[in-house]
Nucleic acid binder design. Structure first.
Lengths: 196, 196, 196, 196
DNA sequence: CATGAATGAGCATTCATTCAT
DNA sequence: AATGAATGAATGCTCATTCAT
């Protein structure tokens, strides 16, 4: 937030990650070249290679760093009883994370075709599986599972302003609140379906 | 059939569209090269240029051809009274279209970052706007609009087998049926919110 | 009045030549594509190949057609006594031709690098040699030969509006008149140098 | 071992310029491909792009480097009184430059159609305007301006061995001397026309 | 820590040309 | 007299990556 902090030495690695994510989210992974990243940072391309082995390494490292909160969410939830209250809390926290790490999630959302053959892909899928597992058992009937999935998608729609929410007439917080309500309805009915 | 006999088109043009869409959906737009498309068709790259002015032209033409059903759906719905029944029918037909034109929609879903600077993008956005407008008035309160959006996303999740539905244990039809149920719940409550 | 029987050439052939010369003169030979010529004529590229064997053939044919006046000038002059008056007349007629076949000459003037390996090149050189020979013997001293060459260049400069003559403040006729005066001075002194 | 040797900054950039100019002058700009230049230098095409942003950039850089003498000539002359003696000296120096930077000037002479849409074109025109302005005021009567232009063209004819001077029977120096004489006659009479 | 110089592979695109119809 | 469809070769250019310094 503070804009005038003096540039510290050797935070280059982080600056690369920041700029890279920004550009990846903005233009997509393949359409963002290392030259572009380097120029934005006013270093040479070769400098990027001092910090990261490959281009994919850059996105992977970002992914690992920014994805930790989700892992923690999963760990936390796994230590809780699978009550409706827990599930509600999972959704709430997930939504909060989504908002916080918006660029990364937007990137993942919009570049699925790219992710497909990045190694991240599998880790991502697994994580989503775990997340889903928190809301609904793996062997739950299809309607329950789909409700849980849709609950997440509702949060995504709200945060990424999909649909017709582009105008400045709604704030992220409003959208998130509205989405949580929907998600809770869905998860409630999924919960009922499963435990009945 | 119209009275005028269309000039006999070689089927190459169509074959290009088919193969291209297949590859675009599979690997993404940028990662699919014209060489690849040409090789798959056993023609030269130059042949592609006989039929299409640019690479973007290929995807645009596909888009226009395969998107027509959605336009027709919109036209149809605009001639109907905005009752709950109509809205249910919209969802049903949309889901059916989704399944039929799966590759195109999957492509659009997974390559949003790419679409961003293809000219298609705007047409796409508009179309989605119209579609949403069929379910919920433009000036509806946020919760209603978000419910409508989520209804569509539920169908997407089902058709594209997002979430944890990758196994062979569910069929497209089952998933679509389950999603329609969810979508109808959402649209029912949106309808109530709006007309109350 | 031409002795050969009236060849009933379709006018397409001629139209191709006209459009081609126009474009060649405007943009240069290599930067003008057959597609461009064909489009301008609203025919297909293949149609060009019905009338001409190759691209070079097009320019060659134009060259042959439009260059005849110069040949005739040479023939005429060779039948005259090599007096100063004859030489003046040669310059006058050459200037008139230049103005009449401006596009061709401009093309030749500006595309020498291209002409280099077109077969025309040699014919062109020879013709220029003959022309020069009308003004000054081949074994004349260098200053005389250079004066004759410069006389021609003065005409070129005037007709092609080289130098600072781009404004609309001069007409072709004015420029030509001024150039002829200069050319005559030069040829007069060359004549004196030679016959002295 | 030898410490006095400046860090062997690659001379590649200059070598590219040299080879490129040579080829451009020989075959023309469009007919010279980057592949050809690269092969001649035994580097890859990509190496050219390390040193120059585009193909046009190569010719532009050459142009700027080799054209400086002309700029300096203009600067010098502008600091002198516009006497006949000054004008003679301008012609003399211009002729010398022409001989020294022959390849560049030959290139410009023979590739005017190409230059037309290279950005250089305007710079070139301006420079020629300045040069002409040294010999004759901009508002001078047409005959005077045309004489000045012709003076330059005489030098060009001599240096580029236009006309019938291709044989080995004349040397550059002889031709230049003869052309200077002609140029001086022309400029003298232009001077008289203007100051009378 | 970082750069300067370079590479090899690839890309979208364009061109002159051919030929069956 | 002309077209529709296609080709083979080339072109300018970009990219991720390497490595000696």
């Amino acid at each position: 937030m503070s804009g005038t902090r003096p540039a510290r030495r050797s935070d280059t690695r982080q600056r690369i990650q920041e700029v890279a994510l920004e550009l990846f989210a903005e233009q997509g992974y393949e359409k963002t070249s290392l030259r572009e990243i380097a120029e934005r940072l006013d270093v040479t391309k070769a400098a990027l290679y001092y910090h990261f082995k490959t281009k994919e390494d850059i996105i992977s490292s970002i992914f690992e760093d920014l994805t930790r909160p989700v892992d923690e969410l999963v760990s936390w939830a796994q230590g809780q009883p699978p009550t409706l209250a827990t599930k509600r809390e999972v959704l709430r926290r997930y939504g909060a994370n989504l908002a916080a790490a918006q660029p990364l999630f937007r990137f993942m959302h919009e570049n699925q075709a790219t992710l497909r053959d990045l190694t991240i892909r599998d880790a991502l899928k697994e994580r989503m599986g775990h997340l889903l597992g928190l809301l609904v058992p793996e062997d739950a009937p299809l309607p329950a599972r789909l409700r849980a999935t849709t609950a997440f998608m509702s949060l995504h729609a709200a945060v990424f302003a999909l649909g017709a929410f582009d105008g400045p007439d709604t704030t992220l917080d409003e959208r998130l609140a509205a989405a949580l309500e929907i998600a809770e309805e869905l998860i409630t009915s999924a919960h009922t379906l499963t435990t009945a």
